Amino acid sequence: MTDRHPITFDGVTPTPAWAFDQYQRLRDQLPESGAGHGGAQWLASLEPLFSRFDAFVFDAFGVLNTGPAVIPGAVERLNSLQAGGRAALILSNAATASQQALTGKYRGMGFDLSERQIISSRWLLEDSLAREPRQGTWGVIAPQGSDSHSLPSVTQQPVRPGVTDHELDACDGFIFLSSEDWDETRQAQLTASLRRRKRPLEVANPDLVAPRGDCLTLEPGFFAHKLRVDCGISPHFYGKPYGPAFAAVLERLAGIPAHRVLMVGDTLHTDILGARAAGMATLLVTDHGALAGMDIHSCIERSGISPDFITPSI
């Protein structure tokens, strides 16, 4: 099936270097980094850390998979970890699929995971909606045939190709689930509508980019920050690197101290930054995700975000 997430926008084609620079420009919008420490330790894989931590939290894209493709060795590594009695969770900024569908996806890839072991930004959004039902009609940005219709406690207006300015202006707020099929036309429509009347924007996926095969796609976080600048609004973001995502992890791990939890991710500005701010240990994976091909030492120095450990692949 053809992936329909945008790989260009307004003349921009994202690369790892471009994405890193974009995150650097947003540093004032991101959490503060956790306490500093010495230089990162380079490892051949995750395996030497099996006995050093009680729980392991994995980002998905760039660590376990790139789009529909499983990263070689990831299934075996995760299954081996669990066979050794260690707790394992996925913390993902995936926002389109329901919890059940996302679990089915990863089980279909060969990962032995239950719904309880996956915390997605979609789940964080749904939990918020269930606790605090939204009033009025909300425009939901998600592709045709997605699970967007299952969002709880909100009256929805799909925002898809063909949506009219009148329909956008009638919405009391917007929920950005997926950038699939999003383009310059719909971004301009939404920008104009929010300029006419500022309203809330809730963003289930804060990522700027995602690795999908041999390219990076532009994700909801990229478009939401453009709306923030162009319309003077303050989007509410779910997922990494923001604190509630990591608080949900620690709650799910039933009392395991944060310093005994290792976050395994491929981005400094989301996985590593968010986990450090929460007091977790961190492992940066370099070969398959947002930093692939980059000078990792330079990225750490420029960002001031240093993981505890670095490995090419888990």
Rank of each mutant, 00 (worst) to 15 (best):
E251Y: 07
D271K: 04
H236E: 09
V249N: 11
R252D: 01
R252I: 01
E251I: 01
G243M: 05
D266C: 05
A248I: 01
D271W: 09
R252Y: 10
A245R: 04
G265R: 04
Y242H: 12
A258T: 07
V249H: 10
A245P: 07
A248N: 05
Y238A: 10
F237D: 10
G255V: 00
P257E: 13
T270W: 05
K240W: 11
G255R: 00
F246T: 04
G255C: 03
H259E: 15
H236Y: 12
H269D: 11
G255K: 10
P241L: 08
T267A: 15
V264S: 02
G265M: 09
V249W: 11
L268D: 15
A248H: 06
D266A: 01
R260I: 04
T267F: 08
H259Q: 15
G243F: 00
G243S: 14
G243E: 15
P241D: 12
V264G: 10
H269E: 13
H269C: 01
I256T: 13
I256L: 06
D266F: 07
R252A: 15
A247Y: 01
R260V: 06
Y242S: 04
A247E: 13
D271F: 06
F246N: 02
R260L: 10
L262R: 09
A245L: 03
L253E: 03
G255L: 05
H236D: 02
P257M: 12
V264Q: 05
H236L: 11
L268H: 15
Y242P: 07
P244L: 03
Y242K: 02
F237Q: 04
A247T: 13
L268G: 13
E251G: 07
Y238C: 02
P241V: 01
M263D: 10
L253F: 11
E251F: 10
L250N: 07
H236S: 07
D266G: 11
P241F: 07
Y238N: 10
H236Q: 13
M263W: 03
L250S: 15
R260P: 08
A258S: 14
L253G: 10
K240Q: 07
G243R: 14
V261E: 09
G243K: 12
A254D: 15
V249G: 11
G239D: 05
V249T: 14
M263L: 01
P244M: 02
R252L: 08
V261M: 07
G265A: 08
H236G: 06
V249S: 12
F246Q: 04
P244I: 05
T270A: 11
R252F: 06
A245K: 02
A247G: 01
A258P: 00
A258H: 08
F246E: 06
E251Q: 13
T270L: 09
G255I: 02
R252N: 14
G243H: 08
T267V: 06
T267P: 02
V261Y: 10
E251V: 08
L268Q: 14
L253R: 12
